[in-house]
Simulated scan of single mutants.
Amino acid sequence: MQEFLTIALIHLVAVASPGPDFAIVVRHSVSFGRRAAMYTSIGIGLGILIHVAYSLVGLSVIIQTTPWLFKAISYVAAAYLIYLAVGALRSGPAPASNQPLTDEPVHSQAHKMPARKALWTGFLTNGLNPKATLFFLSLFTAVIDVNTAFTTKLGYGIYLSVATGIWFCFLSYLLSTSKVARFIGDKGYWLDRTMGVLLIALAVKLVWS
């Protein structure tokens, strides 16, 4: 129980800190509305299972002892973040509309993202996130005891996946409530562009570090 509580606390701090996952959920919530952001959040939660899988089978040790492999992952992730950032930076104001405001941002109603694409984007954003790789490298080598049973470790991984998905689903809901949507209004594309700049900064940081 003490080990689980330690993991839960570390995870809470990690998932709440700004990063690619946070940026893409905010972007999708502002640009495409609650539904797309929810599917993106679920995709992020599923992406956690990638890190759990390689940690359980010992690939984390290979990544940790093979610098070029981790560097290659970082470059791939940086390229993907820039790809997402370009789409965010190209966002513009929504077409004029006389429709009343709903629970989603005004401009999101004109551009719907398919559920599968939102899910896949969230999955790739987390799965290719070196920050998450570092987190799981640390978690499975420094926090979780080497003698902990495989089934227990698997349970930890499932918890981290579910907890991550729930957290970002909550964030998606919060960002798409009527009050927040009204606050964002038809100027939400500026927040979208800000997220684009943040994604580029994260990509540069990955390559630079």
Score class of each variant (00 low, 15 high):
47 G>F: 08
184 I>G: 13
163 A>Y: 05
80 Y>R: 09
167 W>D: 02
152 T>P: 04
34 R>V: 08
1 M>S: 09
25 V>T: 05
96 A>I: 13
44 I>D: 07
10 I>W: 09
63 I>E: 08
187 K>W: 09
175 L>W: 03
96 A>P: 05
76 V>E: 02
176 S>H: 04
123 F>W: 08
10 I>R: 07
191 L>V: 13
62 I>D: 05
48 I>T: 10
107 H>V: 03
171 L>T: 11
119 L>F: 04
54 Y>R: 08
78 A>F: 05
110 A>H: 07
100 P>L: 10
67 P>T: 08
154 L>A: 03
84 L>E: 06
92 G>A: 01
160 L>S: 02
34 R>E: 12
71 K>W: 11
47 G>S: 03
117 K>P: 01
22 F>T: 03
67 P>N: 03
156 Y>H: 08
113 M>L: 07
155 G>K: 05
96 A>F: 12
42 I>N: 01
4 F>D: 04
39 Y>F: 15
25 V>D: 01
80 Y>G: 09
124 L>V: 06
170 F>V: 15
146 V>G: 15
87 G>Q: 14
154 L>R: 01
51 H>W: 04
209 S>L: 12
93 P>W: 08
135 F>S: 03
122 G>Q: 04
141 T>W: 02
69 L>H: 10
110 A>S: 09
111 H>E: 00
34 R>A: 09
120 W>S: 15
93 P>A: 10
12 L>D: 00
88 A>I: 06
120 W>P: 10
153 K>S: 06
17 S>F: 05
191 L>D: 02
114 P>F: 09
4 F>G: 00
68 W>I: 15
8 A>W: 04
3 E>G: 00
82 I>F: 07
188 G>V: 06
107 H>S: 10
75 Y>M: 14
151 T>F: 13
160 L>Q: 03
29 S>E: 07
123 F>T: 13
67 P>D: 06
19 G>A: 00
191 L>N: 01
198 L>N: 02
14 A>F: 04
166 I>F: 07
191 L>W: 02
165 G>W: 01
39 Y>W: 12
43 G>K: 01
158 I>D: 04
101 L>N: 00
198 L>M: 09
153 K>E: 10
16 A>I: 07
91 S>M: 14
154 L>Y: 00
201 A>C: 10
